[in-house]
Amino acid sequence: MTGYDFSLAGARLTALGSGALWWTAQRLLCVSDLHLGKSERHARRGGSALPPYETRDTLARLSDLVSALQPETVVCLGDSFDDDAASRALPDAEQSQLAALTQNRRWIWITGNHDPAPTGLGGEQMDELYLSPLTFRHIANPSATAEVSGHYHPKARVRSTSRPCFLLDRSRLILPAFGTYTGGLRSTDPALAALMERDALAILTGAQALPVPMPR
């Protein structure tokens, strides 16, 4: 396993090098900010035609994880689609790829700020999920504890290498973006620095998940 094991509010969790979170006791896999359909949205809004392969790539990486881990529950932590129209415009091949994934297990779409409406693609839709002792929601609530969220696409720099990362302290875990076409917000950004406690960790993604003190 290429993961980093840790506890949050008593739950034993593993941050995977791929940027996904694994909860062994619940057989739960959690990914955040897939931003499926980004190139379609970009083209629709008059931007240039980005290579239309990001949905295929994101789903392929997700499928690999699902095959390897056989989760009973998958939680997508919001901003799964770049917008609602993007979820409706998925090409047939990608629709069936997604449908195959959502079958045979519990699949939860948490609402994000990009994709508020139901997807109609199978699975359940909810604003947040409570699974004792953890709460899963899209955007961190500064006063919450035992919380798992996404939204910020955190990344951190160690040596001269900058990578997407998890951020972890006693109260919360923030997941990196899993989608192929996603950028990142540096851990030094005031928004993240204010949210995380002083002794927070940044867990870098990569071949091996690597914990470091969160760069501020």
Partner: peptide, 22 residues
């Protein structure tokens, strides 16, 4: 817009994987 923009390296890697003759 840091969160929304992503590096051109990602586009390069994607093309290399899915459309190398582009």
């Amino acid at each position: 817009r840091r969160q929304a923009t992503f590096s051109s390296d990602i586009l390069y890697d994607t093309l290399r994987k899915y459309d190398p003759d582009h």
